[in-house]
């Protein structure tokens, strides 16, 4: 755990408004103590639906404080783009991790945990655990 450097969080969606709204939602639901850097990377640079490696790279760089970056994604090309960037490229900050989590619930858990000073493993665990919450 580190008090000074917080884990950064990037939310990648096929849609710009979805990514931005989930950032707002996660910040809002995490309430008062939100201090962790969170950035959306939604849609294509021209505003269309899709996944942009460029926007993801920029968002990750903007939230990187040296404590690692957790990336949450929605589906399809968002998953594959981040995976391929992690596998080969140098477009993402060191210590960036794709987190296997439900997008909305995982984002809230990640923001709360990162704001509380959790390290990258703790943020990842909290986001992934959101899969365990059954709704029926």
């Amino acid at each position: 755990m580190s008090d000074e450097q917080q884990v950064g969080i990037v939310l990648v969606s096929h849609s710009g408004p979805v990514a931005e709204s989930v950032v707002e939602l996660a910040r809002g639901l995490a309430a008062g103590g939100v201090t962790a850097p969170v950035a959306p990377a939604g849609g294509l640079p021209n505003g269309g639906l899709g996944t942009s490696a460029e926007l993801i790279g920029r968002a990750a760089a903007s939230v990187d404080r040296g404590a690692g970056v957790a990336v949450l994604v929605d589906l399809g090309s968002a998953v594959l783009t981040v995976k391929s960037m992690l596998a080969d490229g140098d477009e993402l900050p060191e210590n960036t991790r794709l987190v296997d989590a439900p997008f909305v619930e995982g984002a809230v858990a990640a923001v709360v945990t990162a704001s509380a000073g959790g390290d990258l493993a703790a943020v990842e665990a909290a986001a992934s655990e959101a899969y365990g919450y059954r709704k029926t």
Binding site: G48, T51, S52, G76, S77, L80, T81, K83, S84, M85
Partner: peptide, 12 residues
């Protein structure tokens, strides 16, 4: 391709 396609075929 990864940076310009925008769909799953880009990373693939």
């Amino acid at each position: 391709l990864i940076s310009t396609v925008g769909g799953a075929s880009g990373p693939l």
